[in-house]
Design a protein around this nucleic acid. Sequence first.
DNA 1: GGGGCGTCTGACCGATTGGTCAAACCTTAT
DNA 2: ATAAGGTTTGACCAATCGGTCAGACGCCCC
Lengths: 213, 213
Amino acid sequence: MKPKKHTAEGGQHTAAKILDAAEGLLADAGYGGMSMGAVGERAGVPKALVFYHFKSKDQLFEQVLERYYGEHLGALRQSFEAAAGQPLGVRLHGVIDAYFDYISTHQRYPRIIQQQVASGGAADLIRRHFEPLFRWTVDALSTELPATGPLAPRQFFVSFSGLVINYFTYAPVLAGMWGGDPLAVEAVAERRAHVHWFVDRALDGLGPAEVRA
Amino acid sequence: MKPKKHTAEGGQHTAAKILDAAEGLLADAGYGGMSMGAVGERAGVPKALVFYHFKSKDQLFEQVLERYYGEHLGALRQSFEAAAGQPLGVRLHGVIDAYFDYISTHQRYPRIIQQQVASGGAADLIRRHFEPLFRWTVDALSTELPATGPLAPRQFFVSFSGLVINYFTYAPVLAGMWGGDPLAVEAVAERRAHVHWFVDRALDGLGPAEVRA
DNA sequence: GGGGCGTCTGACCGATTGGTCAAACCTTAT
DNA sequence: ATAAGGTTTGACCAATCGGTCAGACGCCCC
């Protein structure tokens, strides 16, 4: 019979369990509400083991963010490059779909980020991960749009990311007034269609000739 | 000479000072990061006095939210009713401007709300204040738009509030990459113009005949 | 079998937290 | 003067926090 106690079965597995537990607590209660003891309890290991695998609370948090940002940026990049050569409108739809899909399948992620952004905590860390995403998107649009003014690429970046992210962070609040679960598949599909509609209206407004086709 | 110590000069004034201090700390560090001792220190009063005026941390937080939501809803309502009789497009612009103005002059407010929404903390409290705003907006649009689908009023509510709010919550993160302070007056004006452009594109897409004029 | 060596554990620490209390204070009404 | 009642104060409490430590356990190479 295997020992009940946590034996040295490979640190990889344990560290991953701890990371998962930390993710859940971060999404539920935020950085301040995540206690290292609770992380251990949720992962089924003593608190000291959490500190063994991650030197401090900050470092644990940083690794959670690192994992998410890496996956997220990768998903966007892959989508954008897969549609290389196609007109900007098509590529935009693709990237926004990738954005939408990643968020909708990792709903803890926008919650953690929004909390952190809104509180100003770990600002440098967030900025370090956020900046490549921002610059990459703005560069992709910079050939088609004026660098400043109401139609600047940076404005569209903030707008479209907000259009996607806010729906998921507000979903729990909207639950009672939406007429059904906002996170159910049909509801998410409706939101996706709405975002698509918005993208099309924006493209129309930018002058179809230069931007589309 | 007046005594240096805090005399019984009227509880009103003291309570207001405490509320202000709590607001600042909430915006800076979030609910979890706001300690009652720090609130007292920032207000210049001992911690026990904070507990005398507000029975608990939760109640203090609740009153901060109450004040904001009341002002916010009032500003929107006033703007909407002032433009009674005018075409929907004009009224929409007015309400969104009022939304934008209130947020831009109370930048702590979106930060506090976003943190709380994203963390799921105080969900009932948020929902209680959020729901009238939501229902009221959706009702105003319900005569012009289908109740469900990609063009449902509820979708536009989430979209436009996100368009406005997200800019301000992300401003600190964007600071380094924006080319100037995103909260400077010109930058805020540019954002406002961008939101207006978006509203107009949306109105165009809904069929000018029924909705505008 | 006996070192290493990475993994794991419970007990422990100082600091901080939300919250309480009895007593002191100031103002006003009698 | 004095009684009363709202306000203010610092000292105090149990609980929890992030973090540490000495040692036990399991595995692998000699």
